[in-house]
Amino acid sequence: MKDQDTSQQLSSATGGGIPLTYVIALVPVASVMNVIGGTVASALKLPIFLDMIGTAVVAMTIGPWWGALVGVITNVTAGFITGPTSIPFAACNVVGALIWGYGTKWGWANDKLKFFGLSIASGVGVSLMAAPIVIFVFGGATGHASDVLTAGLLAAGGDMWTSVFSSNIIVSSADKILSSFLALAIIGALPTNLQVTGPIMKAESMGKVVLITAGTVVGVILTVVSMNL
């Protein structure tokens, strides 16, 4: 009887219908997806991060705060491997999770155009959070390829804040669009009763996604350049 009560409490904590053990298993695996995404990006020499795919999957399916937990666990665990410098970026993961999660709750993940807007919104949100961390904790550089872009903007006469934010938003918008659509593909492989946050559209073909991403990046670069001129 006591066990049944506990079980009911646990399933209500996850929005009902999903056993808590499934969520407890999904959160660490999603955190590992984040880490592996980063490994894939560097192994394939991609100029993006791909370190929030797991966060997007959990935020869009189970809920924004579970996604935020995935983000925190990802960065805390990375802190246990490479030192505490990755921990401040947990805030970026939390912001991304909240945007994806609440966006899905408000029905933005059920339509192509709205989903694209949701991806861009998460890119902007994460950049707004990342820029102060990069400047105050790391002095403007984190060792990522985007530092070259920051150096270029600084050399062109930009100030530190504008340059860091501009380079971050260019990379982040591409990164978040790809991450969002990859998350859709993963969600398609998960049990349908897991989608408790809100309705989610079917995955798009990757060719289309790369084209959308390329178009967005060009748009963001043009905006950044015109704002810096």
Binding site: I24, P28, I73, T77, F80, I81
Partner: peptide
């Protein structure tokens, strides 16, 4: 969750 992530 933390220890499972570290192991995986």
């Amino acid at each position: 969750m933390i220890t499972t992530t570290l192991q995986l």
